[in-house]
Design a protein around this nucleic acid. Structure first.
Ligand SMILES: [Mn+2]
Ligand SMILES: [Mn+2]
Ligand SMILES: [Zn+2]
Ligand SMILES: [Zn+2]
Lengths: 142, 142
DNA sequence: TTGTAAGCGATAAAAGTTATCGTTTGATAA
DNA sequence: TTATCAAACGATAACTTTTATCGCTTACAA
């Protein structure tokens, strides 16, 4: 991940052609201190302590901006409306980062072998779900 | 996956202590024919052709029921509000199927090695995102 | 058959996200 | 420094997705 201190926040903004606003910087500094996998509402609650007048819309807009510029990351490609599948065969997914299309892929084609049944923290494994994130054939052509 | 014909749909309902309603059966039969990874709205649009009076609420309620009873499956544990993360180290996730808690896990602890850069259909791999689905330590105690 | 709890449809409400728009501010250059 | 103006902001409406509510209907078993 890109890591830059308070000072070079302005440089990052120049590189990406965006204004180094007060709100944007406080949001960035706040998020940097947050561990785990917060939702926009949780980020909003936290950043309001430092910038009480900030708008939820500004939080959303800048989270998108940070994600697009690679500063932070979404936890998954699958946020949003639920998707269900009727294919009961154990399989994994290829997810196109351009068009979001989801395709099935079996473990054999994937070359993936799940090894451990116990993981750090005493986590008991039920199954592995692999998302291969990349660019689908039609998006590569475009 | 459980697979049962029209006849044993009633048996499945008895096993799970639910009523074998007309709507529930039409919904099940319809979903069984759907490939890919449809949203509830897409399921609703399809099932309305066979049962025009069915309600969207009924579709949602029964999709939940089917998923809980293991007949069908959600594509991901991450549907719903977006989550961001500031941990820029490449890592994967353990997701508890009881409490939905998300924990980080590095590739080394996971024992996972991504092998291929090209996959069927000409999919170009950017990265692998592994979700280990299971039960966290505190949910095992409870 | 009949009683009753479960399930249904209609729809309101909640939750999450995006769009709109008038005002403010940051970046650039005079 | 000041003037200019596009970018960004806050407020909030609108939109999307999901859940809750409630009166009516139906499945089921007594
Ligand atoms: Mn699939
Ligand atoms: Mn993480
Ligand atoms: Zn694509
Ligand atoms: Zn748990």
């Amino acid at each position: 991940m890109l890591v830059y201190g308070t000072k070079s926040f302005r440089e990052h903004c120049r590189e990406h052609g965006i204004a180094a606003t007060h709100q944007r910087q406080v949001l960035y500094e706040t998020m940097k201190t947050m561990h785990g996998h917060p939702s926009p509402e949780e980020v909003y609650a936290r950043v309001k302590k430092k910038a009480p007048a900030i708008s939820l819309a500004t939080v959303y807009k800048n989270i998108h901006l940070f994600v697009e510029s690679g500063v932070f990351r979404k936890v998954s490609m699958h946020h949003g409306p639920v998707r269900v599948e009727m294919n009961g065969e154990p399989h994994h997914h290829m997810v196109c980062s351009k068009c979001r299309k989801i395709s099935d892929i079996g473990e054999k084609e994937l070359g993936f072998v799940a090894k451990r049944n116990r993981l750090p923290g005493g986590f008991l494994v039920e199954r592995y779900a692999v998302d291969v994130i990349g660019v689908c054939a039609s998006c590569q052509m475009a």
